[in-house]
Structures are given as C-alpha cells and as structure tokens.
Design a binder for these strands. Structure first.
Length: 644
RNA sequence: GCCGGCAUAGCUCAGCUGGUAGAGCACCUGAUUUGUAAUCAGGGGGUCACGGGUUCGAGUCCUGUUGCCGGCACCA
C-alpha cells in the first residue's frame, strides 16, 4: 500500500505500483484527462511512472508553469521527430525550453528555409494526431552510446559520452517505437497531449556546444502555448513590441540615424542630442552629489601607453589603431581606465584622498565584430558614464554597496525596472589565486546584500582579473542588456604603478572599482526609447510643449506664449503653419510631444492656453501665468524635484 | 567573425513565370484661416544597394561585394 498526500492535505491509499495517473483518475476523470505530469515529493515526474512509496502528489496541468514547460519541451521533441521524418539524414543535437518556447539544433548539410516551416508544422500536427505514447526508458551509458552511434547520431553519442559519468544510467524518451531522444524528462504521457498551439518562429545558426571553433548547426526556434488563444496573444505582443523598436522610433521621432560609412556609429540629430544632454546633466548632478569629481582624458594615445596598460596585448583586435605621417602608432581609447590612473598618479596621493571617485563621460571606440552591432545597443563609438573609485581594500564593500544604491536610485528615476543584477564569478582563464577569488566574490556578494539586492550568479562571467556585478535591463522584446556595472580591479593599479601614502608613511597600492550606471549613453537611450515607446516623461522629452495656433489671428500670441514658456526653462516649439488644428494635433501626437498648447482667438484674447496631454483628448484651459508655473514644475528632473 | 534572410522614391510598401518603375504618406506650389488625431487641387522626385555576368532585352535570373535584419560566438 502507498499513502498519497494531495495538495489540499487529504490522504488516499493506492496499491503498490500505482502512478500519479492513478491518483489523478481517483480524483476525477476530467483531471486525469487534463493531467500532463505530476510533482511527486516536489520532483516533476512522468504521469505514468510508478510511485516509489508514500508521497505527496500534485497533478500538473497546462494551467501550471510546469505544465507549460513540459508542453514546450515536448514540442521540441515533436519538432525533431517531424524534421527527421521529412529530412532523412538530419542529425539531432539538443532542444531545450526557453522563454516563451523552445528550439532544436539540427545538423544537416543543406540549409533549412523558412519555407519549410509550414511543412514541418503540418508534420508536427500529424505526430500529435498519431497520439504516440511517450515512454521513459532507462539505458546504460554504454548501450546508449552504441545505440546512437548505430543510428548515425554522432552528436547524441558525444553528449552522452561527455556529460554522463561512467556507470550512470540515463533515460531516453520514446514516441512509441517511431522515434526516441536522450532526455532527462519528464514528458507528457503521449504526443496527443501536446496542444497544437505551437508555431515555428525563426531559423538561425548556432555553434555546436556554443563554441565558435566548432561547426555550426541549424537552430529552429518555436513557440508553444497551452491553447490557441495564448499563442495568439503572444504573437500580438511580439507585434506590439516591434513598434517600440528604438531603431524604428529613432527615425520616426528624428532622434538619430546611422549609415553605411559609419558602421556602429551614431549621427545624433537635434532631438536625440537634447535627450542625451538632459540625461548627462542629470547624471552629472547625481555624481556630484555622491562625491565624485569629473575629469576628461585624451581620445587618442600612443601605442606605448596601451602597451603599458596591457591593452595592446590583450585587446588589440578591438582597438581602432592609426598611424601618423611621422610614423607614430596611436590608438583611439577603447576605455578610460588607464587615463584615469594617470590623473591619480599625477602628484602625490594620501590615504586622506581616498576613496577618490573619478568620473568621465568618456567617448570610447571599440572595433566590435560586425555581427555584434545592434542599433544603439551595441555600437563601435560610445560614451560611457564611466568612473573609477580608487580606494583601500577595506573600503571596497562600502563603496560597492553605495554604488548599487546610487545606480538603483538613478535607474528608478528614469522609470526603468531592472531585470536583475548578476554577479560574474571567476572565469576559466583568470589571474589571481583561489583565495583571492574567494575573498573578492564574497566582497561583491556582501556589498550587494548590504545594498538590499540578491544577485543572480553568472558562473564564469567575471573579468579575468576580478568578479563584477552587472545591472541588466530589458529591451522591448525581452533581450537583456547590461546597463551599469561595477568591477573590482587589483591588477591595473599594480601594472601602472598607482600608489598613495598611508597612515604608516609608506606607499600603498590602491584598489580600483570600475563602474558605470547607464553603461553607455547610447545603449541607455536605446533602452529608454523602448521602455517608453518614444513617449518620454516630461523631463526627458526633447520637445516638452508645442504651442499650436488655430489660425493666423492667434499666431502672434502663440509666439509670445512660446517665448514665455522658454523663459521658464521649457523646450518649446511653435506651430503657426497654415494647417488645420486637427492636422497639427495629430502630427504632434504622433511625435509623442507630451503637451500641446492650443491657442485660438479666445486664448489670445484671454491670455490663456488650452493644454492637451498626450494620450488624453480632454483639455485644460488655464492662464498663461498658471501654465508657466505648473509646466515648469512638471518638467523638473526628479532629483531637482526632490530638492524643492 | 559564423549561419540564414533581406536591400525598389525621404518613409511604408506594390511590381506574376525577364519586356524598360507604381501607390499612400512626406516634400513643393496654389486655394483654404481652420477649435483638438489627416482640407482640397496640382507638381516635382528613383543609376531599383554597388560591381561583374547570362540575354535581343534584367528591378526580376546567376555571381561577387557592402550594408541591414534574426540568431550564434564575442562584449576585459
């Protein structure tokens, strides 16, 4: 006898060998029908796998997050079977679940085409209709390797060989006798349980085992949902997200453009630059408040300089190098750190000067691989809101914690929600002892916790000389970008000979904290555009108010009102064109101007403004004097608002 | 950099199996002086990304290059 405890706390008895499916059936026929898998003592298991003994059992259906994951995993398997049926000779490799769907990597000489998708999807539906029982099989490692080799699946054989410790058993999941795949499971009880709400999305290349030295496989991405409605909603969300694309909005709102001759370089138009300047001024105030000093270092420096810093050796491929008529070799700075060390080294520094927080809006150039370029998010010329904190070792934690608080406050002032903070730990290739890394990783973790955040551990993602914390923000379609980082560095001060006089009168080596809050102005503006879909809050909006005249009779007053608003510090445009007010409202609304001040004969007469807010079609008629006060107040950056 | 796709007017796009380029918006001109998301009429505008090739003839087919898009790798 097996005692089963259900989620509601009730207990039932079953014969030995009973499975979660029996449990589901004992509860209700409909539950058994909807059941996809079960959580047995917290572990996700196949529905038909017999219970080992007394257990708590929760039936998983497509309403659970677990259920959706199973559906996606099975969709990947069904995709693989469909592809192998349609394209014999194609080898399978791996097919995991990802956000919103799944992918499967195939090895096949001829490229797949998106034209094949329809055919593959039809075959997938056919496999669902076959309702093949999905069976869990336990194999020995050697048998499994021999099996996959015998059927020409070299990649599978290699995975098993590399990943599974010798002697350990592995599981295969078989779609009846038609198809099987190496898999930890669990899976649905049969292919018929897979909802047909799936769709193949895109085709891409991907290196075998994620290593660019390996051959490239063909990756098919798909999405899968519990039902047709969820699928439709997902596709709709993607369409909506596309409208927020910063590259599209950058053109529509006349913020910036890029062109062939300057790959990865931005031409900032007037409105985009205004946004930039507002952001820069805000960050400058926040840094000044937080005890930073601002500096500026040269754009181009001699090769010998970069040799000393170590970049010539380690980073050469990514540097823009140039030669002069006098045969000097120079490089555009790819980062600001070595320059800041020079300023630190200039003259003598005392322990009383520490921590020294040295900031620069530093324009850097990096020769990024062409395939990495992506709108404003990944460019070759960018401006970091960079700073280096020179401090003693015992100041690291406090400085790091304070930095995290400052960065969080700034991100929140911009209305951005952080996805997560990641702690990049020791990479495979690294400098420094294990003790050093143990200590450094603990310092970063403690500092994060002191600032009230629990970082997600990114194994092996640290810099080669020390761990780092990265602030991850998401774009419109869910891609995560690093905006903000703090990295510990003992190496550069050593290399470049930075030192200070301590209380003991001796020279000591400072530690450096590299840190940025926005990351780069370019990327940050890209994220901002997508976050707001171009409809910026008043304080960031390149144009805050458009004064639109209804007819020529109000034109003079419109100019006068605009001049007054400008005097109050607002960014204002006037529209006295010979167009209807409907046309003007539409145009400025599409340009996402937060406030349109409509003025006609009445307003001119009474010295008033009819204010219309973006996104509402009501209006607020107030006197020009009132408007000057209230709009100026509204347009104040968040930090200045707090000071009042 | 690698795999795949795409490239037609300022923008968004149409142009079937090769027969000599089109729409809407934008722009310019004129009329209209307008009350909260497109006033009407007329006009100008394209080496069809660039370079080779096939053909009587190429936007369309082949090929090379560049750029962009989606991934992968990279991002101290």
């Amino acid at each position: 006898m097996i005692n089963v405890t259900l989620p509601d706390g009730s207990k039932r008895e079953f014969a030995d060998g009973a499975s979660p499916l029996d449990v589901a059936e004992s509860i209700s026929k409909s539950l058994a029908k909807k059941a996809l898998a079960a959580r047995v003592n917290g572990e996700l298991r196949d529905l038909k796998r017999p219970l080992d003994g007394d257990a708590t059992v929760a039936i998983v259906t497509d309403k659970d997050a677990d259920g959706l994951e199973l559906i996606r995993h099975d969709a990947a398997h069904v995709l693989a079977q469909a592809v192998q049926e349609l394209f014999p000779g194609t080898q399978v490799t791996i097919g995991p679940v990802i956000d919103d769907g799944f992918y499967y990597d195939f090895a096949r000489k001829e490229p797949f085409s998106t034209d094949d998708f329809e055919k593959i999807e039809a075959k997938m539906r056919e496999i669902v209709d076959r309702d093949l029982p999905i069976e869990r099989q336990v194999w020995s490692k050697d048998d499994a390797i021999a099996h996959f080799k015998s059927i020409g699946e070299a990649y599978k054989a290699q995975i098993i060989d590399d990943i599974i410790p010798p002697g350990e058993a592995i599981t295969l999941y078989a779609h009846s006798d038609q198809w099987s795949d190496l898999c930890r499971g669990p899976h649905l009880p049969s292919t018929g349980k897979l909802p047909k709400a799936f769709k193949l999305m895109k085709l891409a290349g991907a290196y075998w085992r994620g290593d660019s030295n390996n051959e490239m496989l063909q990756r098919v991405y798909g999405t899968a949902w519990a039902n047709e409605k969820d699928l439709k909603e997902h596709l709709h969300r993607l369409e909506e997200a596309e409208k927020r694309d910063h590259r599209k909005l950058g053109r529509q709102l006349d913020l910036f453009h890029m062109q062939e001759e300057g790959k990865g370089m931005v031409f900032w138009h007037q409105k985009g630059l205004t946004l930039w300047q507002v952001i820069e001024a805000y960050v400058r105030r926040r840094l000044q408040e937080a005890g930073y000093v601002e500096v500026r270092t040269p754009q181009v420096l001699e090769r010998t300089f970069w040799e000393k810093s170590g970049h010539w050796d380690k980073y050469r491929e990514n540097m823009f190098v140039c030669e002069t008529a006098e045969e000097e070799t120079l490089s555009l700075k790819p980062m600001n750190c070595p320059g800041h060390v020079q300023i630190f080294k200039f003259g003598q520094k005392s322990y009383r000067d520490l921590p020294l927080r040295m900031a620069e809006f530093g324009a850097c150039h990096r020769y990024e691989p062409s395939g990495a370029l992506h709108g404003l998010m990944r460019v070759r010329a960018f401006t970091q809101d960079d700073a280096h904190i020179f401090c003693r070792e015992d100041q690291i934690e406090e400085e790091t914690a304070n930095f995290i608080k400052l960065a969080s406050s700034i991100h929140s002032d911009f209305g951005l929600e952080r996805d997560h903070i990641s702690l990049g730990t020791r990479p495979e290739q690294r400098a420094g002892s294990e003790e050093f890394w143990d200590k450094a990783e603990a310092q970063m973790l403690n500092a994060a916790r002191a600032a009230g955040v629990e970082p997600v551990i990114a194994e092996g993602d640290g810099a080669f000389y020390a761990p780092k914390l990265d602030f991850q923000l998401k774009d419109a379609i869910g891609r995560s970008w690093t905006c903000g980082t703090i990295q510990l560095d003992y190496v550069l001060p050593e290399r470049l000979g930075a030192e200070y006089i301590a209380e003991d009168g001796q020279k000591h080596r400072p530690v450096m904290l590299h840190r940025a809050i926005l990351g780069s102005l370019e990327r940050f503006i890209g994220v901002l555009i997508e976050n707001y879909a171009g409809a910026f809050p008043m304080w960031l909006s390149p144009v805050q108010v458009v004064v639109a005249a209804i007819s020529d009779t109000a034109a003079d007053y419109a100019e006068e009102a605009a001049a007054e608003l400008r005097k109050a510090g607002l960014r204002v445009e006037v529209d006295t064109r010979n167009e209807t007010i409907n046309y003007k409202v539409r145009e400025h609304s599409l340009q996402k101007v937060p406030v349109i001040a409509v003025v006609g004969a009445r307003e001119a007469e009474e010295r008033k403004l009819a204010l219309r807010r973006l996104g509402s079609n009501g209006q607020q008629i107030i006197t020009l004097d009132e408007a000057l006060l209230s709009l100026a107040e509204e347009a104040l950056p968040p930090d200045l608002k707090r000071r009042r």
